[in-house]
Write a protein that binds this DNA or RNA. Structure first.
Lengths: 201, 201
DNA sequence: GCGGTTTAATAACGATCATTATGAAAATGA
DNA sequence: TCATTTTCATAATGATCGTTATTAAACCGC
């Protein structure tokens, strides 16, 4: 018995999920969440519990609704196809929605409140500067024959930065130095070589 | 004329830098910052301006004091050595200090307040689960001969996750789909192949 | 239609946030 | 020594945070 719920719980969770995706866990305030869900505060609490519980449910829904490419990738016949499909799926997911780019799994802790946006931009610019330095260096290497003519300095710089960023995330997650070194070695194992470079061992 | 400053501005900035490194920009409160610096609130304001300005100065100091391996790497003779040194330096930096792992450039937006720690752990566990699934799949691939005997499924999984995380960071920074696809292609170009896999084109 | 129960909406809660008045203390120049 | 100027420390500011009383409205079984 009792009064019926007037809002759709799943719709509300979807709306909440998008806010978390865009602003991260801490950056999303209850004012944001209730506004997006079209539901008053106590209604969200009664339906999902507190903010942490709400986020966990949104995260679970995220994986089952948006990261469906991963189980699909795992079904493919070869490891290479698995990796290729996972990469492709991630690119799709992280660039499909302009209003919430990136991945909630990372974004959930990467994003923040609106007031911190200038700081995030500053960090983006810092990283871009590092990437630009690498790119210029690789252009020189190409000119010097240290990289082959087919090499793309911008791609190599972006790739290297991606590995660096990924390792930073992993370091924060507590990955051991040995693991990170293995990752770096793997990342280096495909480095293109020009006429002046030695053969890979 | 006027009273002399009683605290060391550089020491205070170093202390502040470590707090930002550990807690991120938004996760570090002024209470944390003043406690670490051993300086009262108005003194920090008069010396560095507001929180954003303080963070920017800490970030600048971070790059010049801790990311010194990057300009050093750029001096090396070959592009491969540049990449190798950058990766090595990043590993050093992100694992050297147990109290603030990771990289401030990422950490600045990755970390948060102490109350959000359980959520960060939940996200870490989610990512670990994905990585475990990939590893198990790659172990199967190895057993099936799809990956060579020398392949390390755990390393491949960690490497792939690192690239995925790095691309997520880049996607959030506004990288184009084309750029991300180039990064993914580069990341795939060194994928090991077993007896059943086709040659790379 | 009436008691029991659940939801809805308003408003308030205490805590913490970044920021800053305010006034005492200390150091300079004359 | 006095006037001026800068720093220091205490404490307050308004805003926002997540969370929850409180009260009114809607539904069920009987």
């Amino acid at each position: 018995m009792g009064r019926h719920r007037e809002f759709d719980v799943e719709k509300a969770l979807d709306a909440v999920l998008c806010v978390f995706w865009r602003k991260g866990y801490e950056g999303a305030s209850y004012a944001d969440l209730t506004a997006a869900a079209g539901v008053e505060r106590p209604a969200l609490y009664s339906a999902f519990g507190n903010k942490e519980s709400l986020f966990r449910q949104a995260l679970a829904r995220y994986y089952e609704r948006y990261v469906d490419y991963l189980p699909a990738a795992l079904q493919l016949p070869t490891a290479r196809e698995v990796a290729a499909h996972a990469l492709r799926g991630a690119i799709d997911l992280t660039t499909r929605y302009p209003e919430h780019t990136g991945c909630l799994g990372i974004q959930g802790v990467l994003a923040g409140s609106d007031e911190a946006e200038p700081v995030r931009q500053a960090l983006i610019e810092s990283r871009a500067e590092g990437e630009a330095q690498l790119r210029e260096r690789f252009e020189r290497a190409k000119a010097e024959g240290d990289l082959p003519e087919t090499a793309r300095p911008d791609t190599l710089a972006a790739y290297l930065m991606a590995v660096l960023h990924g390792m930073a995330v992993q370091a924060k997650a507590g990955f051991s130095r040995e693991t990170l070194e293995a990752v770096a070695e793997q990342a280096l194992s495909n480095w293109p070589s020009g006429r002046a470079a030695p053969e890979t061992a």
